[in-house]
Write a protein that binds this DNA or RNA. Structure first.
Length: 553
RNA sequence: GCCCCUGUAGCUCAGAGGAUAGAGCGUCGGCCUCCGAAGCCGGAAGCCCAGGUUCGAGUCCUGGCAGGGGCACCA
């Protein structure tokens, strides 16, 4: 049950009722906000609606609040409704309402927190979208974790979600990749050739060339660059996929840029833009009149060499997105794409499509700190710490957590040494330990020979400890957190929620023991039920973050 | 020069226009004979500046100041 939503409706009804009998003047009803007061003495929920109505109603806020309360229906989950200066309406829940959250969690299981915002709607989340020219690095990882976490939240909100990866498998970068691979192969064959300035420096291409050399000796020397490009790009793509799988990100669709050429969409898009009068030729290049949509200058679509810029297939790709029937498209971009994202949407508008279903989520950079020094990252220079290296050293769970532990607007300094350190300072373990401690209770319960299902009909009214109730109060917030994540498209909220939940759990664990000589059996059973729900909730929250819920650590 | 992001505790960050601004790290001091101390309990310490909107501003607007990122016929 979403108490805040129900309260919002009930208060709105009370206002209308008061208006009907003349206790309040007529006015258009604004949305009735229900919030959680910081201070528990103000109740479990509060509404400032009377304060906001003061001007409309031309009455004192306190008076309005009193009128609303007088006309308010009293559902059974409310223990108390009161008015507090300067005009808040405070609601207190019954303890029974909090206690039954235990059963709500156990009934819903891994579906707990589910909301219906996106029921029947299709959403797409695009992220990472790195070219298959090198390993996934830490900046792309941030976008990937943000995107995957948002995808999980969108699913929890009822959306049918497609997680998509768009990659450039053609063009100049791929040619350079092929050339690099061929040169490395020739070097292994003993030929005296050197990399050019534009070629990729990374060790991984030497490894790929060596694979070819070991399998085929020098018999491939006559093969064209495109052969090496195809081989390298497939190998690197597979490596990227594997890295992402290791961090628990599995894409539904890998969208190849090349397919936009094969299907003709790129040139169709250009034709259509031309037909609509948004294209002109200058200096031997083809230009997009993006200034018509507020851009500061026009942009080149086709270079004087006849090659399209990256912008042209990007527009075609988003044109296709617009045609694929998504109700919501989320594009996640790193700082290097902040400026270009709007241009693509201008292109889609120029093609006659609305773009209000597309929402771009931007995030700031990740700087990697190792041994107290910043590690500069560049794929071409081959100087980076790849996601794979981090996975080996740190593991998937801490990487995932740290990547969403900050708002996307905030740059992240990822200190490798600190993340490796498995100390009590690490919030990842603090959260996971809550799940481990729950598991420990059930392990111990079985060890002393008790019935593992003895809590089936436990008397939940015995759960009256303030720690238990505070935890359940927080448990009720999960749907609100999911709603916040999908409406704001901000994945970091779940990380903070998880930490807060754990910080309410641990004192409960200390104070509300199950197996203790001084705890009567009926209370043991109620608490066992409580911890069963707590364990389920932590598993659920960790799953929303794409993290594991360990039984032991 | 233009665009974007950010200025909240010593440090790193939350804060959905509302009541006495929250965490973590660090710091100071306590707690293991019964479910994992990777834990718990307690103390000190803070909204960049100036205007404005509002009954009410850390939050919104304008202008400063400071830091980061971006401004290609690269992607």
């Amino acid at each position: 049950m979403r108490v805040n939503k129900e309260l919002s409706v009930i208060v709105a009804q009370a206002i209308e009722k008061a208006q009907a009998v003349g206790a309040l003047p007529q006015f258009a009803l604004p949305e009735v906000a229900i919030e959680r007061p910081r201070d528990l003495s103000h109740g479990d929920y509060a509404s400032p609606v009377a304060l906001r109505l003061a001007r409309l109603a031309r009455m004192a806020p306190m008076k309005i609040a009193e009128v609303i309360v007088a006309h308010l229906e009293r559902p059974s989950f409310l223990a108390d409704v009161s008015v507090a200066a300067p005009g808040f309406i405070n609601f207190r829940l019954t303890t029974a309402c909090l206690q039954q959250v235990v059963e709500e969690i156990l009934t819903a299981g891994m579906d707990y927190g589910r909301i219906h915002l996106g029921d029947g709607k299709k959403a797409q989340v695009e992220c990472v979208s790195a070219n298959p020219t090198g390993p996934i690095h830490i900046g792309r990882t941030r976008g990937g974790v943000m995107g995957d976490t948002l995808a999980r939240a969108l699913r929890a909100a009822g959306y049918d979600v497609t997680l998509e990866y768009y990659y450039n498998d053609a063009g100049r970068q791929i040619t350079l990749l092929g050339e690099t691979t061929k040169i490395r192969y020739q070097q292994l064959c003993g030929q005296n050739v050197e990399l050019g300035a534009d070629h990729y420096r990374g060790q991984y291409i030497i490894d790929i060339a060596r694979e070819l050399y070991e399998k085929h000796g020098d018999s491939l020397l006559g093969k064209p660059v495109s052969f090496f490009a195809d081989y390298a790009k497939d190998r690197i793509s597979a490596m990227q996929k594997e890295s992402l799988r290791r961090i628990n990100i599995v894409f539904d669709v890998y969208y190849r840029e090349q397919s936009l050429y094969e299907s003709g969409r790129v040139w169709q898009a250009l034709e259509e833009l031309e037909k609509r009068g948004y294209v002109y030729r200058k200096d031997n290049a083809v230009w997009f009149r993006s200034t018509a949509f507020g851009d500061e200058k026009d942009r080149v679509l086709v270079k004087s060499t006849g090659e399209p810029t990256y912008r042209m297939p990007d527009i075609a790709y988003h044109w296709h997105k617009a045609q694929r029937g998504f109700d919501l498209v989320v594009d996640i971009f790193g700082p290097d794409h902040h400026a270009t994202a709007p241009q693509v949407l201008m292109g889609v508008q120029a093609l006659g499509y609305r773009t209000d279903f597309v929402r771009t989520v931007l995030h700031q950079i990740v700087t990697l700190i190792k041994d107290g020094q910043e590690v500069k990252m560049s794929t071409r220079a081959g100087t980076f710490v790849a996601l794979d290296d981090l996975l080996d050293e740190v593991g998937a769970d801490p990487i995932r957590y740290f990547m969403i532990s900050r708002s996307g607007n905030s740059p992240i300094e990822f200190d490798v040494n600190l993340a490796i350190e498995q100390s009590d300072k690490n919030p990842v373990y603090y959260i996971q330990n809550a799940h481990v401690r729950c598991a420990g209770i059930f392990r111990r319960w079985a060890e002393v020979g008790k019935d593992p299902n003895a809590d089936q009909n436990a008397d939940l009214s015995l759960l009256t400890n303030e720690h238990e109730l505070a935890f359940l109060r927080k448990a009720m917030e999960l749907p609100d957190v999911i709603e916040l994540m999908v409406t704001q498209l901000e994945p970091h909220h779940i990380a903070f929620y998880a930490y807060e939940l754990a910080s309410l759990f641990h004192p409960t664990y200390e104070n509300c023991r199950v197996l203790h000589s001084e705890v009567p059996e009926s209370l043991q059973l109620a608490r066992l039920r409580f911890y069963r729900a707590a364990k389920m909730l932590f598993a659920r929250v960790l799953d929303l973050m794409g993290m594991s819920a360990p039984e032991v650590m």
